[in-house]
Amino acid sequence: MRSQSVTLLQGNDSINVIDRVVSTRIVDSPDSHGVDVLFCDYNGRITDIGSIYKIQEKILLLSSEVMGDKTRKTLIDGKSWNEHCDLIIADEAIGRVTLVSDDFQSIFTRMGLDGIELERNRVIEIDDMIAVKSEFPGGSVLDILLPLNQMDDFMSILETAEYSEMSDDRWNFVRLGVCIPTLTDISGNLPNECGMINLISNDKGCYPGQEVHARLESRGRTVKRLCLLTGEAAISPGKYRLSNGSPAHITSCESSDSVSYGIAKLRVNDIESGYVNLDGAIWKVESLTYL
């Protein structure tokens, strides 16, 4: 189960209220489809990341837990006097379970649901829950959203399907392997530095940070990039120097069974070399690109 900020927006103008403040064009996104969005400040730097689902003519926004109240305030403060949009906090109403597996079909089979075709970002409504498959540089996950009062029953079904609930450390390790970023990894960075240029819609007009993003597209040069580190040594988050003197900022890391993953911001030149010497150990580096 993942801790998230869950917000329900209802009213005819909800989609416009959100669209004005995110970097991703969502006004013409199809129904039953999930869209990942970035919230940025006027300097173009990421302040929050979210996923938007249109469900039953309403909009469900999942955003980071730490920035939840601030993001909601941005939305409600920006509503015009004549717009119809109510924001409803759903943290205590809807839960999110993320499944990491090679075989998502097994859970549906256990629920007596065969023939469900999963497609990236397609929202599948099944009774009181929705399922969405998301893809990341390191693999796919299946997000299940459902009423919190049905969570215990659903967890029982998962157990019978031989899924097990991960500890916080195990989840951190798994999500690093799949390359799921948290706000800690990306906050304060420009989208191109995080490999999230696909979450910028250059055709949508003005939004906070748009001027900076437009300049980055036409004239920008990415100096640092978010990357995945894979190695054997344990390391802690923090700022380091590579053996060649270049800076390295590790934002998340976790080890399990002699494998260590980390998300770090490194100079592009260092990432292109494929391997870096960090804190006395060799690490494989791969830049991250989110589609």
Binding site: K58, D128, L146, N149
Partner: peptide, 18 residues
């Protein structure tokens, strides 16, 4: 009922402005 028809939803958030 649907995912949006359960319990635990707040009342609409009101902005406190000066």
């Amino acid at each position: 009922m649907g995912i949006l028809g359960g319990e635990g939803f707040s009342l609409p958030v009101v902005s406190e402005t000066e």
